[in-house]
Design a protein around this nucleic acid. Sequence first.
RNA 1: GCGCCCGUAGCUCAGCUGGAUAGAGCGCUUGCCUCCGGAGCAAGAGGUCACAGGUUCGAAUCCUGUCGGGCGUACCA
Length: 598
Amino acid sequence: MIDFRDVVLDALTSALANTDGAPDRAGLAKALSHPKDQSMGDLAFPAFPLAKALRKAPPAIAAELGATITAALAPDGAIARVEVVGPFLNFFAAPGVLLADLLRSLDDGSFDSFCHADERERVMVEFSQPNTHKVFHVGHLRNVAVGDALQRVYRARGHDVVAANYYGDFGVDVAKCLWWLKHEDVGTPPAIGRGAWLGKAYAATTARLEELKEKDAVAFEALHTELRAILADIKSGDTEMARLYAETRQWCLDEFAEVYGWLDVHFDTDFFESELEEPGHAIVDEYLAKGVFEHSQGAIVCMLDAYDLGPALVRKSDGTSLYLTWDLVLARRKFDEFGVQRSLYVVGAEQTFHFKQLFATLERMGYERAVDCRHVAYELVMLPDGKMSSRKGKVIPFFELRSALRDAIDSKMRSAERGSRDDWTEEQWETTIDRIAVACLRYGMLSVSNTTRVIFDIDAWTNLEGESGAYLMYGLARISGIFAKASEDPRSAAIAKGDLAAAATLAPAFGAEAERALLTHLLRYPRVLAQVEAQADPSFLASWLYDGAKLFSRFYHDCPVLKAEPDLMGARLALVRAAERVLSGGLRTLGVEPVAQM
RNA sequence: GCGCCCGUAGCUCAGCUGGAUAGAGCGCUUGCCUCCGGAGCAAGAGGUCACAGGUUCGAAUCCUGUCGGGCGUACCA
């Protein structure tokens, strides 16, 4: 696999080989940038950084370098030509050479390995972490979209990935839900959306407690005592409450499975909060004995003054444990049982302090690999009129959201004038609608960076015109159309089935800007994956995909494929094939499965 | 008070390890289907990149400060 960037760096380093004070290869690489405009080349080198060392004006340096490099260019190399524009040195890629190489690399697998990280590691990506007995809403979907895209990118980068889920299936909130079910008339649970239904019970008890806190301290305490009793009941196993817990918990787990199935999300391992209580006590005792943890104000803490993080509470004064305690247990299992080298936690930004404390505590416990733990923080999902609130019922539950998306796409497809779907089976309709819905949802969540709040506007997200997940799929559907059409005509069929890599080489250089722009965009894909990994932010992939779809649309409009002369048709078919392979690979890495027709 | 995040077009956001004329979508105005799929393409209008200093050949991008918004800051999860 040829890396155009490497080729350009080679040319620059050898041109500067005998120049004192010239930057090394890494320095040159840092200076390389993309020209503002495709007509100005594919990679640019500004000569400013050399001005001091060479004691010459940047335009003069650029002119000299340009001449040296041009003289050394191989006739069939990856660099077609070099242009000097003032202080800039603009490199133009040779499309035939790079396209042919790209197609061969896609076929023999070297493209995939080119995407791999230098060091391939065992990485755990923990994400989703849904709570049972509570409503699962759009806010939770951002976590799933980010986490799943990240774990897919890590796999594409060649890492050995463990995707982990962590269910919040125990605790006082669960008891609040069960208490309401037991004491109030709740009717019968619905067939769909039982998690949301249980969530209402939880919210009702929470509201009751707040009310009592103001008015009736005795009743407030009494209710708390009842909640603790419920938790004890659940643990004891064979009680009516334990059976109610098991049943309602299973409803929620079944619904989560439905959500993940619809989104095509898979976990390699599941953790449950309900299993961490006992080991949590053990780990606190152990490190208390070792002197790492200490007593403080009736509770047990890990002092983190050295990290400027205060004391981290690991056991409350009533003897019960907390989130942090359970995360210590999980971290130990991740290191010791799973042998992970790196550990990612995809959790909302409001937990930043918690994870700082967690990682510092792990360090104090002697886990050196704590430095390879990373909190992937993302911002909240907001509604157009403000923050979501499950207590006020101001949320969009998953099942409502899914119906809304499906309905919008269904009506869009039925009203579309183009596209013959008369022969579609009911199953094809359903599959296609679901894939587009997932694409819109995932793209909507991932098109902004982790640190930006997402505004979930159901009207905007179901508008399929313009920038949306559907647009990303549209280009690939058109590509399928091109190959379907090509196979109908013997002349184009022969070319399409032939050696497209050879066709790419033999064809004349692309004349249209849209062709070169699309090709060079495809070649950037491996760097985009590396960037996503480095920043732990899938939005770079999402925007690369959007730009790719945009460039393909322009190409599609400007450059007819099947009506071109044979040589050009071959080259364009080669480009279309490469676009299909790279863009669909990228789309799947974002978690979106393309369709041949839509 | 302290810590983290954010402030770019009417709206929603890219661009931020410094580089050429600050981009996209929505909305508004206007062209383009006998054509490989119009879920599209092209054009127009719309900007003191919150503000003030600093660093340098060059700042939306880096540093400092101010203002504005969000979140967090041991017995919730």
